[in-house]
Design a protein around this nucleic acid. Sequence first.
RNA 1: GCGCCCGUAGCUCAGUCGGAUAGAGCACCAGAUUCCUAAUCUGGGGGUCAGAGGUUCGAAUCCUCUCGGGCGCGCCA
Length: 582
Amino acid sequence: MKQIVAELVQTALAGLPELAETAADLAIESTIERTRDASHGDFASNVAMRLAKPARRSPRDIAASIVEALGDSPEVDKVEIAGPGFINFYLSPAAFHAELESIHSQGEAYGRQPAKAAPKILLEFVSANPTGPLHVGHGRGAAFGDTVGNLLEAAGYPVAREYYVNDAGRQMDILGASVWVRWLSDHGVNVDFPKGGYRGDYIRDIAKEIDTSSLSAPDAAAVNEDLPANGDDNKDEYVDALVARAKALHGDDGFDTVRQQSLDSILDDIKDDLADFGVVFDTWYSEKSLTTNNLIDAAIDVLKERDVLYEKDGATWFPSTDYGDDKDRVVVRDNGMKTYFASDIAYHFDKRERGYELLIDVLGADHHGYVTRVRAGLAAMGYEADDLEVEFIQFVTLYRGGEQMQMSTRSGEFDTLRQLRAEVGNDAARFYYVMRSNDQHLDFDLDIATSQSNDNPVFYIQYAHARVASVLRQLEEKSLQWDAANGREQLDQLTEPQERSLMTSLSRYPEVVELAANNRAPQTLVHYLRDLANDFHTYYNAHAFLVDDAALRDARLYLIVATRTVIANGLGILGVSAPEKM
RNA sequence: GCGCCCGUAGCUCAGUCGGAUAGAGCACCAGAUUCCUAAUCUGGGGGUCAGAGGUUCGAAUCCUCUCGGGCGCGCCA
């Protein structure tokens, strides 16, 4: 709808050569915005003010020229110059009626833009370490990432969702050792549980579930012999010794079967959990596969060919300070091990090599230190630093009974995403997670999210949807028919202020989706839906829909069914259900 | 110390590619239902947009500094 106004202004400017020249590099659409106050019309353009300085004319003078050059349009009733030089547009009822018709004809597609070929987007999110079940913090990343993906798709972009599985490195050994110790305990062999190990009950469950038929339980003396102290100061040493002991007693393959099955078990659990949450990934990208496929070496080779790496103190360094980083970073350690940074840049290099043009990472706020160096890596390997965009998720704090709850994976006292979903339901969970800007800390109050009351905004919106469905059921009970075609014909009957207000809100939807997608800001959509539901409830309370006058009734139903469609589409993007009945 | 994020109503937060009188929910106060679901609606009070400068027709929004809060600054993962 905004486009209508933009094109009018564009055409008017074309008829004013001296202004058109000044406005050449100004995107007209960016001067058009919705008015905050209905007394300013439906749309306003500040184009005259923007042109005032370069054109060396007063804003109101320019505005007058533009208004004069505007031709008559069936979509515009009135144009006014106001304030310091705003041009206010009052759209005609016909323009809104046409928009309602679009909602009806496009249905689920309303608000979605035609498919774009580029940029191809790779959206990486969650990527939680597979060392335990997802907790509530990961849930926020999941809901946010998935919703942003939905928004980008609605905006027409090709999006692939990817989960990076950190299945390599020491943490897998620690996981294996943690399960092994529980397994030993089940076989009557007592070993001090490592302080740096994973302590949750799920570790005990895994120890019971995995297939250990190839292993025989050693005796306690063999396991415990000469183990270092399990103190806070040397927990790494103790865990490492346990891993070495497990390998010594069961062989490398023996320990690996424990480690691998533990990983598989946790990963399966994560996949199930996310799928239940409505979050489905296109790819699960294994960190280990980077090594298996020699991608880390390949990335290092690219850097070597470009002659950016240097040697110092026996290690190989990447000069990320050349790209604005605090310090240079080691890529290969003096012991020959590649660093985590090396796999990070290899992974992101591979994303680009796979043909994705825009890489969006959704990360926890504690990872912001990595961005500069990974961008640097991309730039050094021949891509653009800006190819990688990172959205940070601030922490989630759970409250129950007004008290903050503690969360920590290692301590085993965390609250899992699964527990949260069971308690508040998927709809409330997804809604709450994206209700706040991702760069704001989120206080998640379980009492409010579970309350079926007017404190709970998700119900408010769903209720609006259900109310429309309810009206249609009532229609049937009264043995009345809704003639949609007649409704379309009779839209002139809709003259109440609440009707005008609702039509205005509906027509904003495509603009909101585009804005939310461009800003990666789901909360924009959340707030819009809340406003839309409010307009609907207000209308509902002010006027009856199932009136005797068939013409008016058909027209009103035409409007509220359009409302139902838009609410359903918006909730769909949020991954929240749109119930017919509540 | 350096870097990133944040500071808006009593509380929780929108609004920040600069736009007209800064908004919503909750809480508080006063009302609305013979009628499609009251999980709803209407009205009201409530603000030094952390503070101070600057940029300009115009600043919550951009720049600088100060104060306050969170996070990060490994040849860990």
